[in-house]
Each structure stands twice: as C-alpha cells, then as structure tokens.
Write a protein that binds this DNA or RNA. Structure first.
Length: 565
RNA sequence: GCGCCCGUAGCUCAACUGGACAGAGCAUCAGACUUCGGAUCUGAGGGUUGGGGGUUCAAAUCCCUCCGGGCGCGCCA
C-alpha cells in the first residue's frame, strides 16, 4: 500500500513539474499511517516538506499534486487536510483482498520476511554462575530471547549466545564459600571470607558434596572441586530457570577459552588483543598494572586491562574485547548485545577499543535496559544481592507464571524503568493486560467451537481454490477497521525488529484485544447468526484472521494463546 | 564533579523515530448481564508533556540551559 501510494505521488509531482506547476521534478515521499482513522489509511506530508523550496503554502502545493494524481481503483478517496497532508483511503475491495491473503497465510502473515537470510547474533543474559538468576536477569533473558524470536520469525538466521566466566576471582571466592559451608556441615570450625557468598544455595551445594564425598574433601585445600561443583550446580539451575521461561540458547561461550590458547593457536586471544593494543599505542603501564589509555579513545579515564601482582590476571574487560573481535570475525550481519544500564561504561570502552584497532563496529547494536523494581501491596520490595534478600526469577515465575513474567517484562520500552506490580500480575482480571489479550483469544476460540456446533464450518481449506466462497462485502465499516488492525500487526512486527523495540507488539495486541471486546459486546455483531449463513461466514472469516493475528503475536512473545481459560 | 538514561493525567506507562485536537490501563464517579464465555462493555472528569530559551511550515520527540530522579565513574563482573 505504502509503495503504491509513494509511486503515484512521485509520478504526480513529476507530471506537475512537466506542466510547469511545480519547481521540483522529484521529491522523496514518505508515507505514514495516520493516528486518527478519520484521516484515512495513509497520509503523506510531501506538500509540507516542499513548501520551503516551492515558496508556496503547503495546501496549495497539495492541491496541485492532487490534481495531477492518477488514482488506481484500490484507492477510494484522496483528500487534503490539516496544514497540507494528503490523505488516502483505500477501497473496501482492497481490504477484502488483504483479508483473504492473511487468511490464506494462517498465522504467517504476522511474520513479515524482512531478514532475507541475514545473520544475527544475539548475546544476552550472560550471567556468571555465582548464584540463582534474579528478577533483574529476567528482563535481560526475556528481552534477548524475544528479540531472537522476532529475528527468527522475520527471516533472519539467528545465533543466541550466552557469554560467561566460570573462572577468575569471583569463582575462587565462590569455591571458597562452598568449602566453608562444607566444613561447617561436617561440624568443623570455618568462617566465610569477607566478601563470601551468603546465599542458602551455597549450603545446598555443600550438602550435595557431602552426599557424594562424605568427609573425604575435608583436608583438601585445592578449591577446584568446590568451584566446579558450584558452577555445575548453578549453571544447571540457570538452564532450568531459562527452560521454565521458554528462553533458550544455541551457544555458551566461556571467557576462559579466550584466555587460554586453543587448538591451533600459539597464544591466547586475550594475549593477542593486548599485543594489538600495544602496537596501536593504546596501552600504558604504571602502578604495576597494564591500562587501556582513555585519552586517545576519547574516554574519561584509563581502565585496567591486566592486574598488578604475580599472577598478572586480566580483568573482565580484556576478554570482553577479545570476545567482540571474535564475534566480528565470525561475520554476522548484525550483532546485538543485551545488557543492563550498569554495564554502559564497559561497553563504551569495548567499542572504543575495537574502533581504535580498526574494526568496523557498525554491525554492533547495544540494547541497554534500565533496572527492574518489584512492587507488592503498593510498596517497593527491597532487594539486595549481597544479603541474598533478592527475589529469584524462579520465585517470580512460580508466583505469577511464565506468560505474565514474559508479557510484563516486554510491556515497557527497554530504556524505561520497569516496575513489576506483583498484585496486578496475579490478578486474573481485565486490568491485567496479559489476561485481557489472552481472553480475547479464548473468546474467539469459543466462537469457533460454537460455530461448529451450529454447523457453520468455515471452508478455509477450499478458499485457496475458490477465494470468492465467502462474500466479504457483507462486512461493515467497523468490521473492516478490525480487519485492518489484525492485518496491521505485520507492519508493527517489522518496526519492532528494525528498531529493536519488542514492546510495540504487546501494546498493539492490547489495543487489538480492546477493539475486539468492544465489537463483540454489541448484540448486533453476533458472529454466528443462523438466519444469515452468508453474514456468519464473512464474520467468521474476519474472526479467523483476528484469532491468527492474536495467536501469532503472542507466539512471537513466547506467551501462550489459550483456547480456554 | 564528569559520563549515560529518564522526567508525559493522582498512579503505571504509550505516542509508528519531527506530523494533524498528546493516548491507554489503573484509581474516582455514573451506567449495561434471558452472555456466540460479564475474566466483557458504555459514559464522565482528569494535561501549559519538569521550567525557560532556540531550530522548524510543524517539537513530548532535535539543540542549549537550569531543576529533579536512576545508573556508572573498583586492579568486582
């Protein structure tokens, strides 16, 4: 539709120019969907943008363009409105055609194929295995997973990747904490290190070690067995939590592999990066450490890449640079990094370093989300990781269910704070947007059950062969509006993918559900009408597309579309 | 102090990337059930988009500047 209108507008401008009515021979035309349906199905602001160059009022230019338009039959009406918009209204027949096409596609029409096989890597969650996933991790997991789903659905080749570190300083601390709990369980004197992990899960891991090894580890000073046990147990839990949320990964990349030479390598990739940075004069050595120089990168401060001390351990930052080089070398068309606002500074450092090393970072796009708070009974729930008073993601899913967790995490723009209202989340009432949307789907499903009972079966199978089997001219203007809404999801999905803004979909579904409920509630709109099978079939046809649209949209979000609730 | 994000109805948030009179839900008030599932619907009130300047035919959106909030500014990740 937009392409069609844009082309006839361009042609009109060219024609007006040829007849001497306009100075410009060509102009870039943008078409948008008006907010207000009274303004038609599409609008163009060409006349407004041309006003300056033409030296004429926008409405006068709009009139000239309109007079030179060659309007095809799909377009029912062209009008000039407001400051000089040119509005277009499509003919009902056009929408009948669109509706037929959507019905033939089933739920596929909500999946516009815009990826053309391009490759995308989505790196998300990337939580180190130091403890159970928290509510904050949940936003990351759902956001990343949904972006991946959207890319997959729109024709991209997607790699979902989890980057983590099971070695290093924090992991030693984790191992030490498990060892202390292990000794304590055996009744021996032991005390947690100062920054040790206090969570109850550490004790659980210690107990499982006692089950397997009795007291045979009591004299071991090597922390490795404790660390490994902890990492295995926690990683298993993280995977379980993700499963419960419908979140999955293709790759788990371990930071340690970047720090140790792999098969054909003579040195680790981290060492290679340090060498490269040194060649570009981006390193500085002082205070016994090796620093990434801030000044040549336009960063406010130097940042430590290799710690001082006998071990000369790299900081997290160094392998992260190596990891991003690795990602770039793998040749993805698009690389998405999903992370919380607290990691912005690090990401800037990584990107700046990559740029300075001559890499093209244009394919990397960061999606940075703000923090999550929980509200219960009108009060903020206090959460502290250190004290282990946080609410785990498992607890949240347990309390409100997968569908609600996913929908709520997506029901906000990512750079906006997210206040998760537990009371609202648990309410099975219209004010809960998840149930409102799901209920619309259940109602539609119920209509089809009733239709079957009434012997009114929609001949969907034969429609492809005989598209005129259902007379869509029976649909009212209100019903055509509903059809536009259902079909329009396709464009919203495309926009959500291009802008990396999945939240647009749940908002759109909520609007669609509302329109449907309002329509459904009017007695005159009864879909099943035994006295008028023709009308019933036309309405069932529309109902099918609405149902496919809602189900297809929810599926993209990883939220179920129940037939009964 | 410096960097990034945010400030929109009493509350929680949208606004298709600069378009038409800024929209939803909750809350408040007033209504609709012999239902293809009322887990629904109808109506009302509620705004100088934090303040001030600028750019533009057009600003919640872009620029500057104040005010207020969040996050970061670790040899933690």
């Amino acid at each position: 539709m937009k392409e069609l209108i844009a082309s006839i507008l361009s042609a009109a401008v060219a024609r007006a120019h040829a007849s001497g009515k306009l100075n410009s021979a060509s102009v870039t035309v943008t078409i948008e969907a008006p907010k207000d349906p009274a303004h038609g199905d599409a609008a163009s602001n060409v006349a407004l943008t041309m006003a300056r160059g033409e030296g004429k009022p926008p409405r006068a230019i709009a009139t000239v363009i309109k007079d030179h338009l060659a309007t095809p039959p799909e377009i029912a009406e062209v009008s000039i409105a407001g400051p000089g918009f040119i509005n277009f209204r499509m003919a009902p027949e056009y929408w009948h055609g669109e509706l037929r096409r959507a019905a033939a596609d089933g739920a596929c029409f909500v999946r516009p194929q815009i990826g053309h096989g391009k490759s995308v890597q989505v790196e998300f969650l990337s939580a180190n295995p130091t403890g159970p996933l928290t509510v904050g991790h949940g936003r990351n997991a759902v956001l990343g997973d949904t972006l991946a789903r959207l890319f997959e659905a729109t024709g991209y080749r997607v790699t979902r990747e989890y980057y983590f570190n099971d070695g290093g300083r924090q992991m030693k601390l984790l191992g030490a904490s498990v060892r202390v709990r292990y000794l304590q369980e055996l009744g021996r004197e032991a005390e947690l290190p100062e920054d040790g992990y206090q969570g109850e899960y550490i004790r659980e891991i210690a107990k499982s070690l006692i089950e397997r090894h009795r007291d045979s580890l009591a004299e071991t000073t090597d922390l490795e067995v404790f660390r490994t046990a902890a990492v295995d147990a926690i990683m298993t839990e993280i995977r379980k939590t993700c499963d419960g949320l419908g979140v999955r990964f293709d790759n788990f990349t371990n930071e340690r592999d970047l720090m140790t030479p792999q098969a054909a390598e003579t040195r680790s990739r981290v060492d290679a990066v340090l060498e490269q940075l040194r060649q570009h004069d981006l390193l500085a050595d002082y205070d016994g450490a090796t620093w990434l120089r801030g000044e040549p990168l336009g960063l406010p401060k130097d940042a430590v890449l290799v710690r001082s001390g006998p071990d000369r351990e790299p900081t997290y930052r160094t392998p992260d640079i190596a990891y991003h080089i690795d990602k770039l070398k793998r040749g993805f068309d698009l690389i998405i990094d999903v992370f919380g606002a607290d990691h912005i500074a690090e990401h800037q450092q990584v990107i700046a370093a990559l740029k300075a090393l001559g890499y093209d970072v244009a394919t990397i796009r960061a999606i940075i989300y703000q923090f999550v708070t929980l509200t219960r009974a009108g009060e903020k729930v206090k959460m502290s990781t250190r004290k282990a008073t946080y609410v785990t993601l498992d607890e949240l899913v347990e309390e409100v269910g997968k569908d609600v967790v996913r929908f709520f995490f997506l029901f906000r723009k990512h750079d906006s704070h997210l206040d998760f209202d537990l009371d609202l989340a648990k309410r099975q009432a219209p004010e809960n947007p998840v149930f409102y949307v799901q209920y619309a789907h259940a109602r539609l499903a119920s209509v089809f059950r009733e239709a079957e009972k009434a012997g009114l079966v929609l001949p969907v199978e034969t429609l492809a062969a005989n598209p005129q089997a259902v007379d869509l001219t029976r649909l009212s203007a209100e019903e055509i509006e509903l059809a536009k809404r259902a079909i329009g999801l396709s464009e919203v999905v495309a926009g959500a993918v291009e802008s990396l803004e999945p939240h647009r979909i749940p908002f759109y579904l909520l609007d669609m559900a509302g329109e449907f409920h309002r329509y459904y509630n009017k007695a005159a709109n009864r879909i099943i009408n035994p006295d008028d099978p023709g009308l019933s079939q036309a309405r069932l046809f529309l109902a099918k597309v609405m149902r496919d649209s809602i189900a297809g949209g929810l599926e993209l979000l990883g939220v179920s579309a129940p037939d009964r609730m």
